[in-house]
């Protein structure tokens, strides 16, 4: 397949924008990137090499199949009622290896790699997750919106916290 450099550049910029919004904790702008009927999904692992790909019969780490569920998590941060979210980690997301797997007028499928670094103030500790992003993007005006974001975490022992902003 010929590489569509223009589209790759636009998609990359969009993914970097999402990463930056998470790092800057601009949750409202982050939510705006998502479709109303969206899926934010982090599957669990079953074994060394077996990922749980059937979310209605197997466990996911996070499975949010509606934008309202994303809003729940943002609400929880803003509510001040969750002690785990009082001292938010300082995050820096790295996104790379962006590749268009499929593109049409209706949708664009994108694979990318990420490393999300967290400095946790309570524990004076650095943790990070790394792995893959699989996006289904819809063209929206001169940019995109997110229909599906599937995150495959490759180091899946969770050091206390894994939320939408941790990956």
């Amino acid at each position: 397949m010929a590489i569509d450099l223009q589209l790759t550049a636009e998609v990359t910029d969009f993914l970097l924008e999402e990463a930056d919004l998470l790092d800057r904790r601009d949750w409202d702008s982050w939510l705006e990137l998502y479709e109303e009927q969206c899926l934010f999904w982090i599957p669990a692992w079953e074994d060394d090499d077996v990922l749980c790909e059937d979310p209605d019969n197997e466990v996911s780490l996070i499975y949010l199949d509606d934008k309202n569920r994303l809003k729940d998590r943002v609400w929880r941060i803003n509510s001040g009622l969750s002690s785990s979210l009082i001292r938010m980690p300082r995050m820096a997301h790295m996104v790379s290896n962006v590749r268009i797997k499929e593109a049409s007028a209706e949708r664009i499928l994108v694979h990318a790699k990420f490393q999300a670094n967290a400095y946790k103030l309570d524990e004076h500790r650095v943790d990070f997750f790394f792995g893959d992003y699989h996006y289904e993007l819809l063209p929206k005006g001169d940019s995109f919106s997110i229909k599906t974001k599937k995150v495959i975490i490759r180091n899946d022992i969770i050091p206390r916290q894994l939320d939408f902003f941790s990956v």
Binding site: R76, S82, S83, L162
Partner: peptide, 23 residues
């Protein structure tokens, strides 16, 4: 499954707060 993921686990909406209290 959805109720499980919603509440339990370090990626749910409840367990992280317990873990913060243990700390």
């Amino acid at each position: 499954l959805r109720q499980y993921e919603d509440f339990y686990g370090a990626s749910g909406l409840a367990t992280p707060d317990d873990l913060t209290e243990f700390d």
